[in-house]
């Protein structure tokens, strides 16, 4: 059954069996490298890193992806879910092909971060957390990125861009595939 047949289709796939087999294989292949960092009797400690890897592979953390991570770490599904929903860098809803995150905290806004975020909302036609109709960009405002001296700053697909101007923002987003 594909997730489109599911009564809660917007939740995405629920069971591990519904995930693409090749991607599950990629995740399993990546796991030993992650586990190496933790004592053998503390496998669950790899939860954050494993969820990150799963998100990179599956695009977002559907209930099935969370279940996969929990299963492989020998942890309850609830552990994966509470971590996936606690940290803002995990996406528990589908996102666009690119995620643009603009800091609007004090130092950035003093240098124009608030204006950059508001301009982007208008230009992309989305609200905070929204995705463009073509599925290209998800936009959201985020908290301090630690780039206060080089404000304003944003993350594009988790890479930092600093010292932004409206021109540089347009150029960076224009260059995205």
């Amino acid at each position: 059954m594909s997730h489109h047949d599911h009564p809660n289709a917007e939740l995405g796939p629920l069971q591990i069996a519904e995930l693409p087999k090749d991607k599950v294989a990629r995740f399993d292949a990546a796991l030993p490298e992650i586990l190496k960092r933790y004592p053998a009797d503390h496998k669950e400690a790899a939860m954050l890193a494993a969820l990150r890897r799963a998100q990179e592979i599956f695009g977002w953390l559907s209930p099935a992806a969370q279940r996969l991570v929990a299963d492989r770490l020998g942890a309850p599904v609830t552990r994966a879910e509470e971590v996936a929903t606690f940290y803002v860098m995990y996406h528990t809803r589908p996102v666009g092909r690119h995620v643009v995150e603009v800091c609007t905290n004090v130092s950035c806004s003093l240098a124009g971060g608030y204006d950059i975020f508001e301009d982007l909302k208008r230009k992309l036609g989305v609200e905070n957390g929204g995705t463009t109709g073509d599925g290209r960009i998800t936009l959201r405002q985020v908290e301090c990125l630690g780039s206060c001296g080089t404000a304003p700053a944003m993350l594009v697909d988790e890479e930092m861009h600093e010292g932004l101007t409206s021109q540089s923002v347009a150029k960076i987003l224009g260059a995205l595939p």
Partner: peptide, 27 residues
């Protein structure tokens, strides 16, 4: 020595929340 990456939570800079996060939990 290993690098552990957080995932977006200010509270994890608090030392006991940091340890929870290193243990793979919410902070």
């Amino acid at each position: 020595v290993h690098v552990v990456r957080g995932a977006g939570a200010y509270i994890c800079g608090e030392e006991s929340a940091l340890m929870e996060s290193v243990e793979g939990k919410k902070g």
